Simulated assay, not measured.
Amino acid sequence: MLQKNSKLGLTIDEITIGEKIHITEKVEDKDLLLYLGLTNDSNPLYIQHDYAAMTPFKKPIVPTIMLNGIITSAVSKYIPGPGARIIEQHLKYLGPLYHYELFDTLLEVTAVNKGQNTITVSVNSYNEQKQLVIEGTLLVTPPLAL
Rank of each mutant, 00 (worst) to 15 (best):
L146I: 12
L10A: 11
Y51C: 01
G18Y: 07
I71D: 05
Y51A: 00
G115L: 14
I119P: 05
G9M: 07
H90N: 15
K77A: 00
N124H: 13
Q48G: 00
G18K: 07
P142L: 04
N40P: 00
A52E: 03
E108P: 08
T24H: 01
S125L: 04
L106G: 03
L138R: 03
P142G: 04
L139S: 06
K58T: 01
D13S: 13
Y51I: 13
T105S: 11
S122G: 10
L106F: 05
Y35G: 05
L8F: 13
T16V: 12
P60V: 05
G83A: 05
V27E: 09
T137A: 01
K26V: 14
T137V: 10
T11Y: 05
G83C: 06
V133R: 10
T137E: 15
P142V: 02
Y126N: 09
T120M: 03
P44N: 01
V27G: 06
L33V: 15
Y35M: 05
T64V: 08
V27N: 10
N40K: 08
T110A: 04
A53F: 07
N40W: 09
N5Y: 12
D50H: 05
I65C: 08
P142A: 01
I86L: 04
L34R: 13
Q129M: 13
I134H: 11
N68Y: 13
K77N: 00
T105R: 02
T55P: 03
L138K: 04
A52W: 07
H90R: 08
Y126S: 05
I23G: 02
Q89C: 03
S42W: 12
K59P: 02
S125M: 06
L144V: 10
P80E: 11
N43S: 09
T110G: 05
I119D: 07
T141V: 14
K4Q: 13
T120G: 02
V140K: 04
Q116W: 01
D29S: 10
G9Y: 08
N43K: 04
Y93R: 09
N40C: 02
K92M: 11
M1F: 11
I71R: 01
I87H: 04
I21M: 02
G95W: 12
I134A: 06
T141S: 12
V62H: 05
D41E: 09
L34Q: 13
Y100D: 15
D50M: 00
L144F: 12
S6Q: 14
L102E: 15
G37W: 08
L2A: 12
Y51G: 03
L107F: 11
I47A: 03
T72P: 00
A111P: 00
S125A: 15
M66R: 10
L2Q: 13
A53C: 01
K92C: 07
Y46K: 04
L34P: 00
I134G: 08
G18M: 06
Y98H: 15
M54Q: 14
T72W: 01
N127A: 06
K20I: 07
V27T: 14
Q116A: 05
F57S: 06
P142Y: 06
V121T: 08
L38F: 12
E88S: 08
M66A: 07
R85E: 02
L32Q: 06
Q116I: 00
V121K: 04
T110F: 02
Y100S: 15
P63M: 06
E14Y: 06
T120S: 08
T141K: 15
R85P: 00
H22R: 04
